[in-house]
Design a protein around this nucleic acid. Structure first.
Length: 485
RNA sequence: GCCUCGGUAGCUCAAUGGUAGAGCAGUUGACUCUUAAUCAAUUGGUUGGGGGUUCGAGUCCCUCCCGGGGUACCA
């Protein structure tokens, strides 16, 4: 970046002054004895510590300086006196800028106002910051800057940092939970010749040596099922999917998906798995099963209670509740009329009956399912990769788990009949000339054990657990339009 | 893609069509227990870009760029 201003010039001048004084402003190494947070947590008067971090505040009091440095664990106050560090070192500390990195040696003590601090005996400049940090009090509010320069957001806004540290522990606890149950974690191809497992437009990329296009995966499903065929009976992957669609508060073109498959299980198995997993994660990460979403003033705007057992509701019952008890007895024309006139939703004249019904579900019902709800008995037309329900052949053995008004996870009793599977996929491909994944169908013909499978949108799960409102607030670097030079 | 709101100093924000401002940060000085330290002085602007209306535009109009919200696409 070419842009310079007074503040940057000043910092460059301060950098030059350090060099002038014979100090390397970018040290190679400093080894802290512990983190800032640990130094405070294990307080013992006079205990010697070495701490390092970014300089986040500095108050000069004549021959004394109070300053805070901050690392991942938190911050600690440094107490620097001219008498303790010597005239030259004192002068140089005075010349440090906010956001510089510093390592300090000294003894722990408590100030008169009761704050645990380090009485510095000597310190090292670890890295000079050549650009001014965001406002120390107001933080960084400009959303575009927060996303484009997330590191500034993390520096300036503790809540944001906390959210992303928690996201990391959520994923760790999911892994722990699945490992505990004997699941094997695998990695499958991201670049695929035929993108399958979902109906979404893929991103296209190109392989030079093969001289042909590849697609970024839109789902993990078909490869994980090949592994069920291969004898890995409990298998999961946490990875990125890519869908070439619009961007919104709920959609990022690349997003993180967990898919898990369990041989000899069915959708009921996955129901228990999901409920136990989310309760485990919530307890471990948040210490509670009651999630509160707060507005900027800290008022609770939404409460989600994850305490088991979660509600179960049949798809058709929910639709009848919203659209009328006679909904499924209506003629196609009557149904369409009611949807547009009474329910005020847009309906494409080309849409089939089940699509009109599903529009009612997605637009009017799903957003109201704030508390965890397993929606079951979905119509078979909606789900080509699941098995039919023996008790009701119009339905599939599937649930969609909705929490916070969003679909968090669909789960199936997976289709393992290769002949039916081929028919369903051929129907689905229909006129679109979409290629069938023959290799997958061949795999099924070798025999896949009956299995339950589930897909969990990790980003949406994080939105829910962490009380956020937008997917951009749980993805470190959400997709934005590139800035043209 | 469409609708709508927004973009002013490094950051957070003001400014009826009439001299572009404040707080923080920065700079200089004072202060050996401060913590949004305090006190005094002070620097800093192509008002997102381009065009237009006007005696005069941050403000009105057109256009482009970027972002927020909504909507569409998304088994």
């Amino acid at each position: 970046m070419e842009d310079t201003n007074q503040l940057i010039e000043q910092r460059r001048a301060n950098l030059a002054a350090l060099a002038e004084a014979g100090i390397d402003p970018f040290a190679n190494k400093f080894t802290p004895s512990e983190t800032c947070g640990a130094a405070k947590a294990n307080y013992e008067e006079e205990r010697l510590v070495a701490v390092a971090g970014r300089l986040v505040s500095k108050r000069e009091m004549g021959k004394t300086i109070f300053a805070h440095i901050k690392d991942t664990s938190g911050s600690i106050q440094l107490f620097i006196r001219k008498n303790d560090v010597g005239e030259e070192a004192f002068k140089i500390f005075k010349g440090l800028d906010l956001a510089d990195f510093v390592g300090a040696n000294g003894a722990l003590f408590t100030t008169k106002t009761g704050e645990i601090s380090v009485k510095v005996t000597d310190y090292v400049v670890l890295a000079k910051s050549l650009r001014p940090p965001p406002d120390k009090w107001h933080g960084l509010a400009d959303q575009e800057l927060r996303y484009r320069q997330r590191y500034l957001d993390l520096i300036a806004n503790d809540k944001v940092r906390d959210t992303f540290l928690k996201r990391s522990t959520i994923i760790r606890e999911i892994r722990n939970f699945l490992n505990e149950r004997g699941y094997v974690e695998v990695e499958t191809p991201i670049m695929q010749a035929i993108p399958g497992g979902a109906a979404a437009r893929p991103f296209v990329t190109h392989h030079n040596t093969f001289g042909r296009d590849f697609f970024m995966r839109i789902a993990l499903e078909l490869y994980l099922k090949r592994l069920l065929v291969g004898g890995i009976d409990r298998v999961f992957e946490i990875g990125r999917n890519f869908r070439n669609e619009g961007i919104s508060r709920r959609h990022n073109p690349e997003f993180t998906m967990l898919e898990a498959y369990e041989a000899y299980g069915d959708y009921e198995t996955m129901m228990e798995l999901l409920q136990s997993m989310i309760c485990h994660v919530s307890e471990k990460v948040l210490g509670t099963m009651v999630i509160e979403q707060k507005d900027e003033e800290g008022n609770v705007t939404k409460t989600i209670d994850l305490t088991p057992d979660w509600r179960r509701a049949k798809y058709k019952d929910l639709v009848r509740e919203k659209a009328g008890n006679d909904w499924f007895e209506l003629t196609t024309e009557q149904r369409r009329a009611r949807a547009t006139e009474e329910l005020k939703i847009e309906v494409d004249p080309e849409e089939a009956d089940f699509e009109v019904t599903n529009a009612v579900f997605e637009k009017l019902i799903e957003p109201t399912l704030i508390q965890p709800t397993f929606v079951t008995h979905l119509p078979k037309e909606l789900v080509p990769l699941a098995k039919l329900s023996p008790e009701d052949p119009d339905c599939v053995e599937v649930f969609e788990c909705c929490i916070n008004g969003q679909e968090i996870a669909p789960a199936y009793t997976e289709q393992n009949n290769p002949i039916e599977q081929r028919e369903r996929l051929e129907q689905q491909a229909g006129g679109e000339q979409q290629k069938l994944d023959e290799d997958f169908l061949v795999a099924l013909e070798h025999g896949m054990p009956p299995a339950g499978g589930i897909g969990i949108g990790i980003d949406r799960l994080c939105i829910m657990l962490l009380g956020q409102e937008s997917i951009r607030d749980v993805i470190l670097f959400p997709q934005l339009k590139p800035r043209e030079e």
